[in-house]
């Protein structure tokens, strides 16, 4: 079924294409564009760097209803997570990601926290997940997750709260920088199974266009930015 359908569709496309005098024989420039892709127009908002990028990242993430805090010493993170859970009136229990960023933190120094390890994405339903991240985008205050041996993609969507540890070197100007990083890491034309750009907690406006947080994904996203010097101060409301 599929082989003949494929050829029929391709024949019809070819016929239509020929009507306009366009050729199938690829111009070398098209292939070159696929082999060595270049960014299209990169808007100015996607071209920040340094402290300006950190500032923009934190600001836009806050606008997207993320809570953001900065920390100079990563060793303090487990304590801060415990405080966050207490303030949010959430259970003192976290499902830890298998990634290096989170695993190297001194969780044993925070005995009141119940540390759990997910065997299945479904385990974290309704709980709090703590993970690292592949990158973060200042352009829109977005977090970037990629699938690998240590990253359960599904656990970014199943919990009620997602705590994400971002290292300052991971914050880039725009989406375009993420593609550059991934092409460098995996090769051009190759990507991990999942590359997920996450911008704040899940939301819907499907009932009378009223925004409601926590549609299907996390109701809360808490960002812990690890930076030597930068401090984010939320504008007072």
């Amino acid at each position: 079924m599929s082989a003949s359908s494929r050829s029929e569709i391709f024949e019809k496309i070819a016929k239509g294409r020929a009507q306009r005098g366009n050729s199938f024989e690829p111009d070398p420039s098209w292939r070159a564009r696929l082999e060595t892709p270049k960014a299209d127009i990169i808007p100015a908002i996607a071209q920040t760097n340094g402290d300006a990028a950190l500032q923009r990242f934190c600001q836009l993430a806050s606008i997207l209803s993320c809570s953001v805090e900065t920390v100079h010493d990563p060793k303090l993170i487990p304590d801060q997570v415990a405080t966050y859970l207490k303030n949010q009136q959430l259970a003192q229990e976290v499902w830890l990601g298998e990634d290096q960023t989170v695993q190297q933190l001194p969780w044993d120094k925070t005995p009141m926290l119940n540390i759990r390890k997910a065997e299945d994405d479904r385990d974290v339903d309704g709980g709090t997940v703590v993970t690292g991240i592949m990158g973060a985008v200042a352009e829109t205050g977005t977090l970037v997750l990629t699938s690998d041996a240590h990253t359960r993609v599904g656990t970014a969507y199943m919990p009620d709260a997602h705590v994400i540890v971002v290292e300052e070197e991971q914050v880039v100007g725009g989406f375009d920088d993420i593609w550059d990083l991934l092409r460098e890491r995996y090769g051009v034309g190759e990507l991990p199974r999942a590359v997920n750009f996450i911008s704040g907690p899940s939301r819907t406006a499907d009932i009378e266009a009223t925004m409601v947080l926590g549609a299907h994904g996390p109701r809360a996203v808490h960002i812990v930015l690890v930076s030597k010097d930068f401090v984010w101060e939320a504008p007072s409301t």
């Binding site: 836009l60 997207l64 352009e139 829109t140 205050g141 977005t142 699938s147 990507l191 991990p192 199974r193 999942a194 590359v195 997920n196 750009f197 996450i198 911008s199 704040g200 907690p201 899940s202 939301r203 994904g217």
Partner: peptide, 14 residues
């Protein structure tokens, strides 16, 4: 400026 979830999937589980 960004939808909440903009996701890119390439093939099955590796």
């Amino acid at each position: 400026e960004a939808a909440n979830y903009m996701s890119f999937y390439t093939g099955p589980k590796r």
